Computed example of a mutant assay.
Amino acid sequence: MGLSLNSLQNSIGIEQLWTVNPLMERCSRIKSTVLTCILWNIRKCRNAEIFRHEDETNLMISRRCRDDLILWSNRCSSPSDRAKLVGWSKLFPM
């Protein structure tokens, strides 16, 4: 997925994801969007388990990340940002 896991420590806080930059993405807007998308969908999976007792697969989470990034790319006014988000979306399996 383009993650640089070598830069992550064993215990890392959520706020460190923005400073360590495990995505190796140069554009801070894109990095923030992709990280938010991933964390948002992990949270949705957790909520499905806690509140609805639904067990979601990693593939389901990955597909939602892909779909969200494509949706969000359509709202970008910058063609380069749009292309980057579409590029990131392709890293998630269909």
Rank of each mutant, 00 (worst) to 15 (best):
M1F: 13
S4E: 15
S7M: 11
L8G: 08
Q9C: 08
S11C: 13
S11Q: 14
I12D: 06
G13S: 11
G13K: 09
G13T: 09
E15I: 09
Q16R: 10
L17N: 04
W18P: 02
V20K: 10
V20Y: 08
N21A: 02
N21V: 01
P22K: 06
M24V: 14
E25R: 04
C27D: 15
R29T: 10
I30L: 08
I30W: 02
I30C: 12
T33V: 06
T36F: 11
C37P: 04
N41E: 09
I42W: 11
R43E: 10
R43C: 14
N47D: 15
F51A: 11
F51H: 15
R52M: 11
E54Y: 05
E54F: 03
E56M: 03
N58I: 13
N58F: 14
M60D: 09
M60W: 04
M60S: 05
S62M: 13
R66T: 04
R66F: 08
D67Q: 03
D67A: 04
D68P: 00
D68F: 01
L69K: 00
L71T: 05
L71G: 03
L71K: 01
L71C: 07
S73V: 07
N74E: 12
N74S: 07
R75F: 12
R75S: 07
R75K: 10
R75W: 10
C76Y: 02
S77K: 04
P79M: 08
P79F: 08
D81H: 13
R82T: 01
R82M: 03
K84R: 15
G87N: 09
W88N: 00
